[in-house]
Computed example of a mutant assay.
Amino acid sequence: MRLTEFWKKMNAQFGSGYAESFASDHVMSELGGRTVREALDAGWETKDVWRAVCAAMGVPASRQ
């Protein structure tokens, strides 16, 4: 998954204003105690980060 597609999905799920805040501020155990931004900066694959967000936040399968 390209980074642009990842952010489209984040914005669609959380709204453009909250997606950035969530990515920067919400520490997730699914990402090893990192935020979305930290995981991406550490080299995590975008598809793996998106899957972790979906699992943690209960994103419906139809929106994954």
Rank of each mutant, 00 (worst) to 15 (best):
K47M: 05
L3R: 09
E5H: 12
F14E: 02
E38C: 03
E5G: 13
S62H: 15
G32Y: 11
G32L: 07
A55E: 07
G32A: 08
E30Q: 08
S21D: 06
M57L: 04
A19H: 10
D48V: 10
A23V: 00
G58I: 01
S24R: 14
S21V: 15
M28F: 10
T46E: 00
A55L: 11
Y18Q: 11
P60M: 00
G58P: 08
K47D: 06
E30L: 04
R51F: 01
K47V: 05
S16M: 07
D25E: 13
A42W: 08
R2D: 14
L31E: 00
D41K: 13
A55S: 13
T35P: 15
K8Y: 04
Y18N: 13
E5Y: 07
D48E: 08
F14M: 04
S16Y: 09
E45Y: 11
V36P: 15
V49W: 01
A19V: 01
Y18D: 05
T46V: 11
S16P: 04
P60D: 02
E38T: 00
K9V: 07
Q13C: 12
M28A: 02
H26W: 10
M10Q: 12
V49E: 00
R2L: 00
E5R: 15
G43W: 03
D48H: 10
K9S: 09
G15W: 01
R37I: 09
V36T: 05
S16K: 15
R34D: 01
G58A: 00
A12I: 05
S24A: 14
Q13T: 07
A12C: 07
